[in-house]
Design a protein around this nucleic acid. Structure first.
Lengths: 194, 194
DNA sequence: ACCGCATGCAAGCACCCACTTGCACACAAG
DNA sequence: CTTGTGTGCAAGTGGGTGCTTGCATGCGGT
């Protein structure tokens, strides 16, 4: 049944570019190379097609995980942050669209944000473990560190293409700078760096 | 000429909620309590109305400035961050919409991001001054600190209403936590806190 | 009293929208 | 061979869209 996946992919692509209202059933059918009627026969309505398409897109996402036991904080965080940034960047169009559509279509929110919340919980766990092991200092909010690092990666990833003026020059530099800044705030063990 | 401002306000409000395509000339006219024809007579087209409305909205924005000479870093940054967060939060609907519309309507980008770039430059100047005065350590990228703090405030402000799960509990706590985290990373002079 | 100007109102244009119906075809399973 | 199933095609529904036209009305300045 290739038609179904074709339709879902075309829908996701159009939705990322044009938003809910811009993603018309005619355009979807044309991009998928399928008759418009087929779309309604398979999904019933534009709404269910769109919700399904966003759900599929979000599913095939982040299972980037930090190691269970922290060892080399800087290296592990850098690897993780780079991968996470990459995944966000790949989906930046859809993410920007969803942020704008949540108000009108709240049914999109749970399905789209579930991954982000899991990722945040994982980083929090990792930093907690690192603190327990004495790899970072005892002061400073781990929540703040987590949220700030993830927000920095998120914003850089989704605005990089669209607002080049607001980003650090290269992706690699930006991610590394964010990780370093985070570790500095957490007092990565007294003078392991600089 | 009250009609003009009424129309611009109504347009901005609808645009923030419904995006470009959802903001129809009929809805604008109805919300403004004006005949639809008047709208075309005054602005010529829907496009010029929308661009003008976004420009006006962006203009009446941030001239939050940090002091010329840093003194009490924590207090000054906290005041500034709180005000900045407030302004972003007030405009969160429009900001989310713009982020999604930039791709289709690049003419919106310059007018909407100009303020953010000025604000970033101001914070960078402020931190540079603070470092020159020895109020913070000599290590650590000031660009990274600036971008991360501004991104954290930005993300919190624009997602707080729409994704309550991803934010620190209260606005005040979040802003304070972000400022503290930033200062810790910049080694606010050795043990002025905690 | 006159004029110009801003606005309202009613109607309409050509086009796009989501969605439906009816009919034809192909192909695979019984 | 028949039957069902998936698909295409053509047409149409009622409604929304940006935008225009023609005409009436009020109101302030000369």
């Amino acid at each position: 049944m290739p038609t179904r996946k074709t339709l879902l992919d075309a829908t996701a692509q159009l939705f990322a570019e044009l938003g809910w209202r811009g993603t018309t059933t005619r355009r979807i059918a044309e991009l998928a190379g399928v008759n418009e009627v087929t779309l309604f026969r398979k999904f019933g309505s534009k709404e269910s097609l769109l919700v399904e398409a966003v759900r599929c897109q979000a599913e095939g996402a982040m299972q980037d995980q930090l190691p269970a036991k922290p060892a080399d904080l800087r290296a592990e965080l850098l690897t993780w942050a780079t991968a996470h940034h990459g995944h966000l960047h790949e989906r930046s169009g859809m993410i920007r669209t969803c942020l704008a559509e949540f108000e009108e279509h709240p049914e999109l929110a749970p399905v789209a944000t579930e991954g982000a919340e899991r990722t945040m919980a994982d980083m929090l766990r990792y930093l907690g473990e690192a603190r327990r092991l004495g790899l970072i200092g005892q002061n400073g909010s781990l929540e703040a560190a987590t949220v700030m690092l993830m927000n920095a990666l998120f914003m850089d990833a989704i605005t990089r293409d669209v607002l080049p003026g607001c980003a650090l020059v290269s992706t690699g530099d930006a991610v590394a700078a964010f990780v370093d800044h985070t570790l500095r705030a957490l007092a990565l063990e007294p003078r392991a760096h600089n």
